[in-house]
Simulated assay, not measured.
Amino acid sequence: MKRRILIATLALAGGAAAIAQGPPPAPRPITLAARPNATGGEALYVEHCISCHGPNGMGTGLLGRRIQPALLELRDNLSPQYVVMAARQGIGNMPSIPRGEVSDEELKAIAEYLAAGPHEVAK
Results as ranks from 00 to 15, higher is better:
residue 1 M to T: 10
residue 3 R to C: 06
residue 5 I to H: 13
residue 5 I to K: 10
residue 6 L to F: 14
residue 7 I to Y: 07
residue 7 I to K: 00
residue 9 T to V: 15
residue 9 T to R: 03
residue 10 L to M: 12
residue 12 L to S: 06
residue 12 L to M: 09
residue 12 L to V: 11
residue 14 G to S: 11
residue 15 G to C: 09
residue 16 A to T: 02
residue 18 A to G: 11
residue 19 I to R: 12
residue 20 A to W: 15
residue 22 G to H: 14
residue 22 G to D: 07
residue 22 G to F: 05
residue 23 P to N: 13
residue 25 P to T: 07
residue 26 A to M: 10
residue 27 P to S: 07
residue 27 P to W: 02
residue 28 R to H: 13
residue 28 R to P: 06
residue 28 R to I: 12
residue 29 P to Y: 04
residue 30 I to P: 02
residue 30 I to A: 05
residue 32 L to P: 09
residue 32 L to E: 14
residue 33 A to H: 12
residue 33 A to E: 15
residue 35 R to I: 14
residue 36 P to E: 10
residue 36 P to L: 10
residue 38 A to W: 10
residue 39 T to M: 05
residue 43 A to E: 05
residue 44 L to T: 03
residue 47 E to L: 15
residue 48 H to D: 12
residue 50 I to D: 13
residue 53 H to C: 04
residue 53 H to M: 02
residue 55 P to H: 08
residue 56 N to S: 12
residue 56 N to T: 07
residue 58 M to N: 07
residue 59 G to M: 11
residue 60 T to Y: 01
residue 61 G to K: 08
residue 63 L to G: 01
residue 63 L to Y: 06
residue 66 R to M: 12
residue 67 I to N: 10
residue 67 I to D: 11
residue 69 P to N: 08
residue 69 P to C: 09
residue 70 A to G: 03
residue 72 L to H: 09
residue 73 E to G: 07
residue 75 R to A: 04
residue 75 R to H: 09
residue 76 D to N: 06
residue 76 D to H: 03
residue 77 N to Q: 06
residue 77 N to L: 02
residue 78 L to T: 00
residue 78 L to K: 01
residue 79 S to W: 00
residue 80 P to A: 05
residue 81 Q to T: 11
residue 83 V to N: 02
residue 83 V to C: 03
residue 84 V to G: 03
residue 85 M to L: 11
residue 86 A to S: 10
residue 86 A to P: 10
residue 91 I to D: 07
residue 91 I to V: 13
residue 93 N to F: 09
residue 96 S to Y: 11
residue 97 I to G: 04
residue 99 R to D: 14
residue 99 R to K: 15
residue 100 G to A: 12
residue 100 G to C: 01
residue 100 G to W: 11
residue 103 S to V: 15
residue 106 E to T: 13
residue 106 E to H: 07
residue 108 K to C: 03
residue 109 A to L: 12
residue 109 A to M: 09
residue 109 A to F: 11
residue 110 I to C: 00
residue 113 Y to A: 07
residue 114 L to Y: 00
residue 114 L to G: 01
residue 115 A to D: 00
residue 116 A to C: 08
residue 116 A to W: 02
residue 116 A to P: 15
residue 117 G to I: 11
residue 119 H to R: 02
residue 120 E to C: 06
residue 123 K to M: 11
